[in-house]
Amino acid sequence: MLEIKNLHVDFEGMRGKTEALKNMNLSLNRGEILGIVGESGSGKSITALSILGLLEENAIISKGRILYNGDNLLELSKKNIQALRGKEIGMVFQEPMTALQPTMRIGKQLFNVIKQHRNLSSKETKEAVLHALRDVHIDNPELVAKKYPFELSGGMRQRIVIALAMAAPPNLLIADEPTTALDVTIQYEIINLIKELNEKRGTSVLLITHDLGVVANVCDRILVMYAGEVVESGNTKDVLSHPIHPYTKSLLNALPDSVEPHEPLQAIEGEPPNLLKRPKGCAFSERCHFVMDICKEEHPELKDGGSSHQASCWLEKVIV
């Protein structure tokens, strides 16, 4: 349904060209929840923005294709992309306030979106608004519909944003750190909500997050990104319980849950590489415990964008 084929995104900046995304491959099947995990600067958000055509002006897509149901999104006109966003592709971002009109009542906002995308009478649309609010587990939709965004809590706002994103209803939902700004108990509810919408309506979801806990609980498959590249991909269960790439392993080990309180945490020493001057070999080689000579010289590639569990690591290739 959604396919990204060796996408390269660079940023032209004052210090030169930053290779923010390098050879990104991804395929999302209908009805699937695909997670992209990575730390800041790993390129996960840039992936989402590329799909939505929302990259900043100084971003250059130097190579690659983004196929949505066979159409290359990168070749669509601005107008067509805009039409696609909202109708076909819904989006939810970290900060719900940015997606809401601060001066318009919730009900009106939903009304407008539904009216625009669905062929309904005004009365039916009003019904649909209440229905949409109920779908995101808002108990008293009549009351909430009359409120302005600032009158609601962060968790409620994010539900409204999800309701708006799902209003069309879209076939694909892109959620970029949808729960990062929320409390744990609310995060739990929002994550369950996304899962439920996926199950009930078959909406495909691309979930972008830094939180391995979130990924473990909702995603069917995940991509692990590091320094603008996918370093490991596979079924959530496989990746998290049998990680191949040393980065994935280290990331899991760095979680405070992974050790007893009296043991030191296994931190990943150092920092991600400077994307202005990418190392010749593997981007993780400088921080890797298992580094070999070849890692510094040659860049390991993923085999394909397919679904099998794999990692871009020389170690795997040597052993297998």
């Binding site: 210090r15 930053t18 923010a20 600067g41 991600p272 400077n274 994307l275 001057k277």
Partner: peptide, 12 residues
């Protein structure tokens, strides 16, 4: 969107 620059390049 955060991009990690190493401290060296920021000297320019």
């Amino acid at each position: 969107m955060q991009i990690n620059y190493s401290s060296k390049t920021l000297k320019s």
